[in-house]
């Protein structure tokens, strides 16, 4: 048995250093970016020649939660997910898995993942696609956090009596 705290959760998330970690971060940005933002940012780079290896196809992923937030896993319900895998003419295989049913979006994220893996095009993808998307996502997060923060309750303490 294991009593769970936040420290372990953090440790799990930080287990993989290096290039895989960087690719994971890049793929996260492709997934979190709104579809329109991804499409428009993708136009900042030259679309490579590629062949589709799989999909785009839509399926289901069963989402899990944890009892009490940190205990045993349980199944909450499914979500639609669209995945796509492509092979660029330069050889890289790009993958994408994104919530929803937008095949074009998943295909776009897959070839961007392929371009990112190629050392010759990685910097371009990072500067022209990932950087603006990451900034847009961060701005949206700040907006949500700031709008919520305006509804934070500020308690006043009443002083009663002489003491």
């Amino acid at each position: 048995m294991l009593i769970c705290g936040k420290a372990e959760v953090m440790a799990e998330g930080q287990a993989r250093p290096g290039i895989e970690d960087e690719r994971q971060s890049a793929m996260r940005i492709f997934s979190l970016a709104p579809a329109e933002a991804l499409r428009s940012a993708a136009q900042n780079v030259n679309k490579p020649a590629y062949e589709r290896l799989r999909g785009p196809e839509t399926g289901l992923v069963m989402l899990r939660g944890r009892t009490g937030g940190g205990g045993e896993a349980f199944n909450v319900g499914e979500a639609t997910v669209t995945r796509c895998s492509v092979r660029l003419a330069s050889g890289e295989v790009g993958h994408a898995y994104i919530l929803g049913r937008d095949g074009e979006r998943a295909e776009c994220a897959a070839w961007l993942d392929g371009l990112w893996q190629n050392p010759a095009t990685r910097a371009t993808v990072e500067d022209r696609v990932l950087a603006p998307l990451a900034a847009a996502i961060a701005a949206e997060e700040r907006t949500v956090a700031a709008k919520s923060a305006r509804t934070k309750v500020e308690f006043f303490t009443m002083v009663r009596g002489e003491d």
Binding site: T58, L60, V61, R64, G65
Partner: peptide, 23 residues
């Protein structure tokens, strides 16, 4: 509708302490 779609698998458990809070 869900019965018409293939199952890709199971997600990692959601980490609710990292929630982008609205309330």
């Amino acid at each position: 509708y869900r019965t018409t779609l293939p199952r890709f698998g199971y997600s990692a458990p959601l980490e609710t302490q990292d929630m982008l809070l609205r309330r």
